[in-house]
């Protein structure tokens, strides 16, 4: 009886699995290629938004002031402690503090934070501000205030040259 029941349960699970897995991303969705971005035209203090895997990626050319502010923050003040350096390192382990490359999706509920375009509200910490539920990020994209639990995510990226970066 128990063996029959157990086998039945395994069979039911085996039948259910294709239906559940069917909803996962398809091969063509997974195959979305990485993108290469020329960062040469971005002036100091400017930022651009590029689309990668259907999501916005922020590339900000940080000013000296941005970098100093980000580095000066004590870890104890951060809900999700990460050094500024660890957030500006590419996959070849090269640190480029002037380039901050992040997925522009608020870690609360997925809105695109403001602050990447000139004239937008950068929030109380000079970085980004999410208008949906009021999360504020600093100049390193780290969460400082509001309901978001994590810092803005850093995608895998590699500087192929000083002006060309590959994301993904």
């Amino acid at each position: 009886m128990v063996a029959t029941g157990a086998l039945g349960a395994v069979g039911a699970a085996a039948v259910a699995w294709p239906f559940i897995n069917n909803l996962n991303p398809a091969a063509d969705t997974l195959a979305l290629a990485s993108i290469e971005v020329n960062v040469m035209p971005i002036e100091v203090g400017q930022a651009i938004t590029v689309k990668w895997r259907g999501k916005p990626v922020f590339i900000r050319h940080r000013t000296e002031k941005d970098i100093k502010e980000a580095e000066a923050v004590p870890m104890s003040e951060l809900p999700d402690p990460q050094t500024d350096n660890s957030r500006v390192t590419d996959t070849a382990k090269k640190v480029r503090p002037e380039w901050l490359i992040m997925i522009g999706v608020c870690t609360h509920l997925g809105c695109v934070p403001l602050g990447n375009l000139p004239g937008q509200d950068k929030g109380p910490y000079g970085g980004w501000y999410c208008p949906c539920h009021g999360s504020a990020y600093d100049t390193s994209g780290r969460i400082r205030k509001g309901p978001a639990p994590l810092n803005l995510a850093i995608p895998q990226y590699l500087f192929l040259s000083d002006s060309l970066v590959r994301i993904g």
Binding site: I20, N24, P25, T29, R53, G54, K55, L109
Partner: peptide, 23 residues
């Protein structure tokens, strides 16, 4: 995505991709 550990996988599963899209 607020669900600990498996939250992000569940969201990807709901979306059928890495963001809200055609699927």
């Amino acid at each position: 995505s607020a669900i600990p550990v498996v939250g992000d996988s569940i969201v990807t599963w709901l979306w059928g991709g890495f963001s809200i899209g055609n699927p």
